[in-house]
């Protein structure tokens, strides 16, 4: 089975999972995975517990937010750029309104309360 290469960026505290590629506040890792691998497979390869990551991008498209991770089964392609953020990051709605999202996240937000118009999707969602 052929291999894919993913350009991985780990920010803040997640840089400790950088397999020796830490550069202080971030790490940039080249991950080699088998074809058909998913975000879940990439996290397992990097040994990152999924709950430790928050905002996530796949090729510049938002794929997950804190408490909302519909991207675990998203299949990666060769040359993809994947970026994982620590839970102390943020992307307020007004600054991401209309930004690119993967299909799975767009569908999850459309189905959620207020169509995803929030900052966090975990502990505070029931209060919203």
């Amino acid at each position: 089975m052929s291999e894919i290469v993913v350009d991985v960026w780990l920010y803040g505290g997640l840089s400790k999972y950088g397999r020796g590629a830490e550069q202080g506040s971030f790490a940039n890792v080249e991950a080699r995975l088998r074809e058909g691998s998913t975000i879940g497979d990439l996290l397992a390869f990097l040994k990152i517990p999924s709950w430790e990551r928050g905002i996530t991008f796949i090729d510049g498209q938002l794929s997950a937010m804190p408490g909302l991770q519909p991207d675990m089964d998203h299949i990666l392609s060769d040359g993809d750029r994947a970026a994982f953020f620590h839970l102390n990051s943020m992307w307020p709605f007004q600054y991401r309104h209309g930004a690119a999202m993967i299909r799975e996240l767009a569908e999850a937000m459309q189905a959620g309360k207020d169509r995803g118009l929030h900052h966090s999707y975990g502990e505070h969602e029931s209060n919203a």
Partner: peptide, 12 residues
């Protein structure tokens, strides 16, 4: 400035 990396990854 926590938004620098976020907007950069978003291509924005």
């Amino acid at each position: 400035a926590v938004l620098i990396n976020i907007l950069n990854e978003a291509g924005g």
